[in-house]
Nucleic acid binder design. Structure first.
Length: 153
DNA sequence: GCCAACGTTGGC
DNA sequence: GCCAACGTTGGC
């Protein structure tokens, strides 16, 4: 059982989009960064939990909690020429990009903004999200960090 | 919209 | 393998 944080731009796919999706489930597609890919491919397991983070928006922050439904598997959008995530250099016989299925557990009662997460707090001092220059869109969260953030809610 | 920080590409 | 150029991310 692992904890993660998944970033999404709400203008592309928001927590409300997930809430409105069939079975409140979606394939987490379009991740095109190798470090994030390695996590999706090698570390994600059924039953893991993740925060749904809204990035690149007016008030960035954590909007909800999702459950990982299974291990990562190849991202079909990588080999779909019609997809905005198409990667001409990828190859379905030797997949380069991975994603996972996730299901909404719940929207947070109270949105936790990045500003609030940045308030000095020992438990979140090492949160990857807060590292200077961090751009990872899929990152691990420790149990302590997870509990601390849920405690803020 | 700006731009700092970062990742990737490709010439050499 | 180096590194300049370029493209992207994402907070502000």
């Amino acid at each position: 059982m692992n904890y993660w944080l998944l970033k999404s731009e709400p203008s592309v796919f928001s927590i409300d989009d997930l809430a409105a999706a069939p079975k409140q489930t979606t394939f987490w597609e379009g991740v095109r960064n190798y470090q994030a890919r390695n996590l999706l491919r090698d570390r994600f397991q059924a039953g893991d939990h993740a925060f749904f983070y809204h990035s690149n928006t007016k008030i960035p922050g954590i909007a909800g909690v999702v459950q990982v439904l299974g291990a990562g598997y190849p991202d079909p959008t990588a080999v779909d020429p019609g997809s905005p995530y198409f990667d001409a250099a990828s190859d379905s016989a030797n997949p380069r990009w991975y994603g996972v299925d996730v299901k909404l557990i719940r929207k947070l009662d109270r949105f936790i903004s990045l500003t609030e997460l940045k308030e000095p707090r020992d438990a979140l001092a090492d949160l990857i999200l807060l590292r200077r220059g961090n751009r990872l869109s899929v990152m691990p969260i420790t149990t302590e960090q997870w509990n601390c953030i849920l405690g803020l809610e």
